[in-house]
Amino acid sequence: MARRENPEINAGSMADIAFLLLIFFLVTTTMDVDSGISRKLPEKQPDTDIKPPVLKEKNIFEVNINRNNDLLVEGDAMKIEDLRQAAIDFIDNGGGNGKKVDGKEGEPCDYCNGAKSPTSSDHPNKAVISIQSDRGTDYGMFVSVQNELGAAYTELRNRLGLKKYNRSYTDLVKDLSNNKGNEELKAKISFLKKAYPQVISEAEPTK
């Protein structure tokens, strides 16, 4: 009797099967990573009448957006392209003394490069940006404004970081995400954040 050998399975169509699966995964794949602008909403206020703290007019940077997506900054029309620089000029002005810190009287900003104009903000930790939009404003415009204002803070922090630690703020944050729990990096980042605290207030939109 002839010895029967196991016939070899023809693997020629293996490629076809694999291609079929490959195409399926290619089609269903979404390569997008979820990313976005992070914001923290203010906590809900109790109903009792708490008087909002009184801020000096010059320490508020007012940004208004109307329903035609036009920008009004400190009373003047402005293009979105110029918003970042305007915000930087405002935050970095350093025209007076800062807030009281740990019971000590506020000191003038020694790291600001601004014009020190008496009509603009006193100190980065006193500077407040207020955004008022309309209910009809496009969300895209709203995000653009948020982004530009956030970018203004990042730019200032980067500058101070480069001066102080020879490493920009963005790089420090990146380092921390690669090296979680590094106390030294954390301290540097929180120092920069404290030097230019991001205070963006959103007013209820106009109807």
Binding site: D34, G36, I37, R39, L41, E43, I80, M141, N147
Partner: peptide, 18 residues
């Protein structure tokens, strides 16, 4: 009290949002 939000965006310049 769900205070952490993220406005989902793609990466790119902001000037063509409108």
């Amino acid at each position: 009290n769900a205070l952490k939000i993220s406005y989902s965006t793609s990466k790119g310049e902001v000037f063509n949002n409108v």
